[in-house]
Design a protein around this nucleic acid. Structure first.
Lengths: 166, 166
DNA sequence: CTCGTTTTTACTTGCTCAGGCAAGTAAAAC
DNA sequence: GTTTTACTTGCCTGAGCAAGTAAAAACGAG
């Protein structure tokens, strides 16, 4: 109990805030995925991979870098890239500069898919997150998200996808 | 493009806000789960089930009601209850009032586990979410979460756990 | 009003797939 | 030759969907 700000159980406003956030954490990810999955059979995560590649030089990135961009483990990324590679959206090649590394490259088909999917994804994010908020609240959400991110990173022993040396 | 507020792609402040939120959506749930799993082999979801039962009359709830409280599908709940039942934390009984319904009841062991786990869970939520924010920001987060929830519910054809007629 | 049939409700479970962990593989660095 | 880096993959678990089961409710005929 000498621990500052950590009561034995949450109550009052804090409990209500936490409950509201917990519901969002449960519902928002599937709600964000749904239109993309329905229309393009793409998860938000797979979309993120395509998006990251589209912005990269030569539309190619090493797996490790891509994992950092998409906040994921290498394992998860490897399987996701396998899936979208099987659909012809990306190809994997051995990096000529370093035989250990794999380069994921966006194909023309992948770029087409991304360009079709982007308005759908933007629309979903807008409808579910941005539009329901005032301009001020969007700014607040940004700052709040940054602070929570920082708190997570500062947790001892917590490194979600080991972002390399960035 | 006649659609108000839904640009073909996000940019600027909106993109930054969305990126920050997306990272939180990815990182926060596992960060919240970690201490509970490490110390008690309990997911946040299983903890939520115990928590809901502890507050109920006779420490018992019908599965459907419990599913609504924990924002989950009946299928997911059923498996979660199977797991914690196998550990002796709850028991399932046929509802005498309605033979279709199953009552999940918290056992003494379940109550003990909940009482041990609650300070750990509160501490995690406090450290990762509440403490990094100012008092004003906690209020903002509450309001923002409520608004996003409402937007999700208003999406046509979206009902996550069909809360019955509650 | 009663009996038999259909519909609805309340779960449970088989199938399948995504993702975590840890073990395996291959190339580069030391 | 050993260690480190960069993945990939086998095993296992959790969750969604849809099909299955069982009990209650609703309905219709007599």
């Amino acid at each position: 109990m000498s621990d500052s700000g950590a009561p034995a159980h949450l109550a009052g406003d804090d409990l209500a805030t936490w409950a509201a956030l917990a519901t969002v954490l449960e519902w928002l990810p599937p709600a964000l995925d749904a239109p993309l999955v329905r229309d393009f059979d793409l998860t938000h995560f797979e979309y993120g991979v395509l998006f990251a590649l589209a912005d990269a030089p030569d539309r190619a990135l090493r797996m490790t870098v891509l994992a950092a961009y998409s906040n994921s483990s290498l394992s998860r990324l490897s399987r996701a890239v396998s899936r979208i590679e099987a659909r012809g959206l990306v190809i994997r090649t051995r990096d000529p500069k370093d035989g250990r590394s794999t380069l994921a490259t966006l194909t023309e088909a992948g770029l087409d898919m991304l360009e079709e999917a982007t308005p759908v994804q933007s629309h979903t994010v807008t409808k579910l997150v941005l539009e329901p908020l005032t301009k001020a609240q969007r700014g607040q959400l940004h700052e709040i998200s940054v602070r929570i991110q920082r708190a997570i990173r500062e947790q001892e022993g917590w490194q979600p996808a080991r972002p390399g040396r960035g």
